[in-house]
């Protein structure tokens, strides 16, 4: 057990270091902005006095190391700064759009599991059949094609040619069905790549487990193949898939930017994209940091859950630390 707690401590320590490092990197990037953030933000027609005033309000007149410390201190208190155009806290702006992005990410993952797990299970229980080989090719195709190409093709096929689904926006507030229908295409565009991943991963881990001695013993004792697969093997095969899903949520928050732009939905990606367009760097910084934070935390969670669930990893940790 000391192995596990030692592992948790070192993992937490690394995570904290990485988060501080990521913040420092984001801070350093603002130093690279040609000109300085204040004059870039205000545009070429601003008077020197106005620029000076904004520079002071943004704290740009302080030495670099002090600005970094102030920045880190503020973020530690949950303050991502103020948007100097609208005067609103950036954290509020991020939290406002987060639900849309999180809904999209979870809908995509849900869709990917609902399709990918059965496909992978079928492929693993019918290995080397024509269907299995066809699935293998389709999976690679799903993984390889960029999600923004899929998004545009879905838009083209289902809402322009077939006119089946409404295209843009999130739907009328309060109208659940309208919102759900408008979620289908964006979620599908992000899910398709993950369907490929999950189907492949499910197939390979299930095949591996079906060859384990305890599964063969169960078969030898006369349990039906279906029962062995559904009662025992799937449980074991679920673990790597769950790990991929955890990583997927974090990655999807970043990938959602394309679905949000193409389907004109509000969200974190859209917020960052628009801030880049108007050169509003504090918002870019804050938005990107939130994505990084969620990404790092989901990775941490996955690692910890993994170590906790899988006795083999726990055993190895014990050996490694002693």
């Amino acid at each position: 057990m000391s192995g596990l707690s030692g592992y948790i401590l070192s993992r937490l320590g690394t995570t904290a270091l990485v988060v501080v490092g990521a913040l420092t990197l984001l801070f350093a990037l603002t130093l690279l902005v040609p000109g300085d953030p204040a004059s870039v933000l205000l545009g070429p027609r601003a008077t020197p006095e106005v620029i000076d005033d904004l520079r002071r309000r943004m704290g740009l007149d302080l030495p670099v190391w002090l600005r970094l410390l102030k920045f880190l201190g503020q973020v530690a208190q949950g303050d991502l700064g103020i948007d100097f155009i609208s005067g609103r806290p950036i954290l509020t702006m991020v939290l406002e759009v987060m639900p849309y992005t999180v809904t999209l990410a979870f809908a995509s993952i849900g869709l990917a599991v609902a399709i990918g797990v059965p496909l992978g299970t079928y492929a693993a229980t019918h290995p080397n059949t024509a269907a299995d080989q066809a699935l293998a090719v389709v999976s690679v195709g799903f993984i390889a094609v960029p999600n923004f190409v899929i998004a545009i093709y879905l838009l083209l096929i289902f809402s322009i040619w077939l006119d089946w689904l409404p295209v843009l926006g999130t739907g009328r507030p309060g109208d659940f069905w309208d919102q759900a229908r408008r979620l289908i295409l964006p979620a599908a565009s992000l899910a398709i790549g993950w369907v490929g991943y999950i189907a492949r991963l499910m197939r390979s881990s299930l095949l591996e487990i079906l060859n384990e001695p305890y599964i063969r013993t169960n078969r030898a004792f006369g349990l039906s193949k279906a029962k062995v697969v559904y009662k025992y093997a799937l449980k074991g095969a679920a673990l790597p898939t769950i790990a991929i899903l955890g990583l997927g949520i974090g990655r999807l928050l970043g990938g959602a930017i394309f679905a949000e732009i193409i389907f004109a939905r509000p969200g974190l990606g859209k917020l960052i994209y628009e801030a880049i367009g108007t050169r509003n760097y504090p918002i870019v910084q804050g938005g990107v940091f939130v994505i990084v934070l969620l990404f790092v935390l989901t990775n941490l969670l996955v690692d910890l859950v993994y170590a906790w669930i899988d006795p083999r990893i726990r055993a190895n940790l014990g050996k490694a630390s002693s």
Partner: peptide, 18 residues
């Protein structure tokens, strides 16, 4: 670890934007 703590597209986006 710090570099990979950003999804690669997001890091690239932030850097090129600035």
């Amino acid at each position: 670890d710090i570099i990979t703590s950003f999804p690669s597209l997001v890091l690239a986006l932030a850097m090129v934007a600035m």
